[in-house]
Design a protein around this nucleic acid. Structure first.
Lengths: 197, 197
DNA sequence: GAGCTACTGACACGAGTGTGTCAGTAGCTC
DNA sequence: GAGCTACTGACACACTCGTGTCAGTAGCTC
């Protein structure tokens, strides 16, 4: 291989970036090396050299996509939203941004695929995203709630609302309706926080 | 073709049923005709004859999967649950049933694929499911709420919770946590119904 | 200039893909 | 038995797939 996966060469990251743009536009399912190589101005030979094989490429692409997601999560951790409600609002603003549509479609694709084919480069993708997000949401909860069973339940529900609304948005492109639903949820979360049940 | 799609031949439905079982086990993404034909005790020639081409087969399979889903929806319409909360509880019981796991994975696959490749046999699959479900949930709402903007928002949120919890369940297989989240949501729905905000 | 590393081009191999062609056969109606 | 419909088997075609092979070349260090 050209270099460690931890310390990729300049050419590798350059081609990975180009391939990432290509995959955002065309999806992962029907990805094949020759059209990709041509689109990024390279050859299958080079892709094989830099990524080992196709699975290596796909794996690298999924990691690249995950990097975008982790950036959002890191941002959330950084400014530590006060409570689940604010965190959910911030996340939704990100999810609903039109610029992120292609990435989120890719995300949905990888998620579904990892459910159906538990092996291969997508292995564990779905499970990893769920736990990643639950962890971040937990970090936004006040400490006492975070540890409680009630807290687990709350962040699970919050994640479900975000994911479900995202699916709706991706399918119908009706940002108004989806956003209204999320907003009403976070509003009820807030009032629930103010007056604990 | 052997007969109308509306009035399929006995052999066609027999093979479709076998193919459906095969696809539930193996997924749609990597479906190819020769292995499928062998598994169902037939030949690619026959599949082509009965379904026209591969897209025809896939389309028929998706319709078949949708029939399972519509059965649940029809059941809901039949006993007309009193309000969204009860409807959501009933739907969740169905979604969480281990027997339905394979079908729901297939559903997720088709949903994601229809987002990424808007053409082909999956065209409109995601959008169709969303509106189908929203319609059924609407039918479970009391008439005045159903027409209101507030009502649209409520069923959108309810659908999001169900879909999001389903994604969680499929990824983590943690039925307890997912079910607790859904239950807490329907509980709050009920109390909200009792004391409208 | 030798030698090393990183990268690249041309080409071929074997397998698998969907689909087309041609020739059937079983069962039914007349 | 003729003729029709529904279905089936054997085989081939053109193509794409991921990958392997062999031979390079540009840039750097010594």
């Amino acid at each position: 291989m050209s270099s460690d996966a931890a310390n990729p060469s300049a050419r590798r990251t350059e081609l990975l970036e180009a391939a990432y743009r290509y995959v955002l536009a065309h999806g992962l399912t029907s990805l094949s090396l020759r059209p990709l190589a041509e689109a990024v101005g390279s050859s299958t030979r080079v892709l094989m050299f830099l990524f080992g094989n196709k699975d290596g490429l796909v794996h690298a692409l999924l990691e690249r996509a995950r990097a975008d997601e982790l950036e959002l999560l890191a941002g959330l951790r950084a400014d530590r939203p006060a409570g689940l409600a604010q965190a959910a609002d911030e996340v939704w603003a990100w999810l609903a941004a039109p610029d992120h549509r292609a990435l989120l479609r890719l995300w949905a694709e990888a998620y579904a695929r990892s459910l159906v084919e538990p092996d291969g480069p997508w292995a564990g993708f779905a499970r990893a995203t769920v736990t990643d997000w639950l962890d971040v949401l937990a970090a936004c909860q006040p400490a006492p709630e975070r540890e409680s069973e009630e807290g687990t339940l709350r962040r699970t529900l919050t994640l479900a609302v975000l994911r479900g609304a995202l699916l709706d948005l991706l399918a119908t492109d009706d940002a108004l309706r989806a956003t209204a639903a999320v907003t009403s949820y976070t509003a009820s979360l807030r009032s629930g926080d103010a007056a604990p049940e």
